[in-house]
Design a protein around this nucleic acid. Structure first.
Lengths: 130, 130
DNA sequence: TTCGATGCAAACCATTTGCATTAAC
DNA sequence: GTTAATGCAAATGGTTTGCATCGAA
């Protein structure tokens, strides 16, 4: 699926969840899709969004990310550096995946293997993994 | 191992790492040992420490917890609520364990099963798990 | 005696919020 | 036209830091 298709799909999800489709939300989604491999912080997303000549405030980026987290389009990740990062959910992913954080360079890698599948079966939906 | 033994042992670890054994550090260790089952935040630890009539500032608690994290006596855990929690390492534990956070009541449970053992074998010591 | 440790208050900084204005529906 | 969404600036709150003092070694 290319970016335009994915954008269309996520916009539809937003709309179906009862939210208005504003240009600010659209450009934030676009930045997330264009940087799917990275784990961007709100400030970084704000920076990229501004580069697209978007008229947007940082608070709106935060508010948009909160909505996207609520409707499960992105996952919010907290490492110990005091900055939350946001990760687009993989197509069809039903649960969180893990990350490796390099203590030397700070880079983040994803663990592809499904480490939690077995345990998740035991849990109800009021529970999230960490 | 009872609390007094454990305290003696962790104090030794602190000292062997080149840190001074101050009353503030000792009482912080004691609170951590007495609440081993909980996942206390710095503020909560400060509260318990103060209850022991200790003359200590919140900044010292933070500084002590940073040291204890560095020398691997505790693990620092970040959920998405903006408060770091601190978890005494289990005796002989060589890697991080996982947590379940209840979205209704906020309680935290530990996952006993070793979910990461296999993958850890692939990694060098510059890497931490999340 | 020395140098690390402490307490306090101020600084920091990511995130949230109040409010008047704007725009999606 | 209604109501949610936005931008801005101010507030929030957990954590860190500067600095003078203290005390473990």
């Amino acid at each position: 699926m290319n970016i335009q298709e994915a954008l269309k799909k996520t916009k539809k999800q937003l709309h179906e969840s009862g939210f208005k489709l504003t240009p600010q939300r659209e450009v934030t989604l676009l930045v997330l899709l264009e940087n799917e491999k990275d784990h961007l912080s709100a400030e970084e997303i704000y920076f990229f969004v501004k580069q697209k000549n978007a008229d947007i405030g940082l608070a709106t980026v935060y508010r948009t990310l909160e909505i996207l987290t609520d409707i499960k389009i992105v996952d919010k990740i907290s490492f110990d550096d005091g900055v939350a990062r946001y990760d687009l959910r993989k197509e069809g992913a039903t649960h969180f995946h893990h990350h490796l954080l390099c203590l030397d360079c700070g880079c983040i890698e994803e663990i592809e293997e499904d480490l939690l599948g077995e345990v998740e079966g035991l849990l109800n939906r009021s529970t999230i993994f960490w």
